[in-house]
């Protein structure tokens, strides 16, 4: 027994090393599914504080202020415009506006209720240099942010809220290998899954589009309505290259992102007001299985 203690005492650092290494590797493995791990993310108060105070150095002060006001106004206008359109009986006017801004028609349900609400937030931290990039925004639980809210910049997809702190939230960016988003080609409505291969921060890959579908460079890729986080038809990017993988029935399509992730300052959070109903319905379906 004494020898055992002596052994442990002599090699205590090896035990410590094995313990900490196993612990951290298990964190890596469990974190590989971003939805599971909700522990120590950049939405915590300390990192949020540093990011928030430091973000200002990169964003010129006046520009920042003007930007915020504009975006705020934009969000209000978008909501107001929807109200206006509901009352409007002039169909031709409605269709002209819809053509200009796809957000407006996509955000209503058949009862003419407003489904999607937009609020603004400022990006206080952002990266493009990793395989798994996240953004941190300066709004959190106290400001009404919830997980799985969509994040858009000027009507283009940026990411999804994964973790909410009191005053900050973490957003998984499209530039993250762990996130897949369903997307379709606007011209012909064929959908596939969009993901990033971790190489070029300007380009993501659209997979699972079958070979028989006509695809051309310059085709616009937009969101489908399958995810309750985004309205249907939000712009994601433009097809710049496509090829048929060897031994595969699907195209490999490169999509140039509409958003430049290096210069995002202001974003809008999308809230789906019918999410409860959707979740309830979907859980009913799952129970039935």
């Amino acid at each position: 027994m004494r020898n055992l203690f002596r052994l442990i005492l002599r090699y205590h650092y090896i035990f410590l090393f094995v313990f900490l290494e196993v612990f951290s590797l298990s964190l890596v493995v469990s974190y590989n599914n971003y939805q599971q791990a909700k522990f120590l993310t950049s939405s915590n108060g300390i990192s949020g504080y540093f990011f928030e105070n430091f973000a200002g150095i990169f964003q010129v002060f006046d520009l920042k202020k003007a930007n915020t006001e504009l975006a705020e106004e934009n969000a209000q206008l978008r909501t107001a415009l929807q109200h206006y359109q509901l009352r409007s009986s002039n169909n031709s006017l409605q269709s002209i506006q819809a053509e200009r801004n796809p957000l407006i028609t996509m955000t209503r349900d058949s009862l003419n209720k407003i489904v999607y609400f937009f609020t603004t937030a400022r990006v206080i931290n952002n990266s493009v240099n990793q395989r798994h990039n996240f953004l941190t925004l300066n709004k959190g639980r106290y400001q009404g942010v919830k997980t799985n809210m969509g994040v858009v910049s000027a009507g283009r997809v940026v990411g999804l809220v994964t973790d909410v702190g009191d005053n900050y939230c973490s957003v998984i960016s499209i530039l993250n290998e762990r996130w897949k988003l369903s997307a379709k080609i606007k011209r012909n409505d064929f959908f596939g899954s969009l993901s990033w291969n971790g190489q070029n921060y300007r380009k993501v890959q659209l997979n699972e589009i079958p070979y028989h579908v006509p695809v051309e460079n310059g085709d616009t890729v937009v969101t489908t309505g399958f995810s309750s986080s985004f309205p249907e038809g939000l712009e994601i990017g433009i097809v710049t290259d496509y090829s048929i993988g060897s031994g595969s029935n699907f195209y490999k399509i490169d999509v140039q992102l509409a958003v430049d992730f290096r210069s995002i300052v202001q974003v809008a959070l999308v809230e789906n007001r019918q999410i409860k109903e959707i979740n309830k319905l979907e859980s009913l379906n799952n129970d039935g299985k």
Binding site: V28, S30, T41, F50, N125, Q130, S170
Partner: peptide, 13 residues
Amino acid sequence: IDAFTNTLGVHTA
């Protein structure tokens, strides 16, 4: 580092 970059466990390991 991990807490700031959302890469829990990677830098730690």
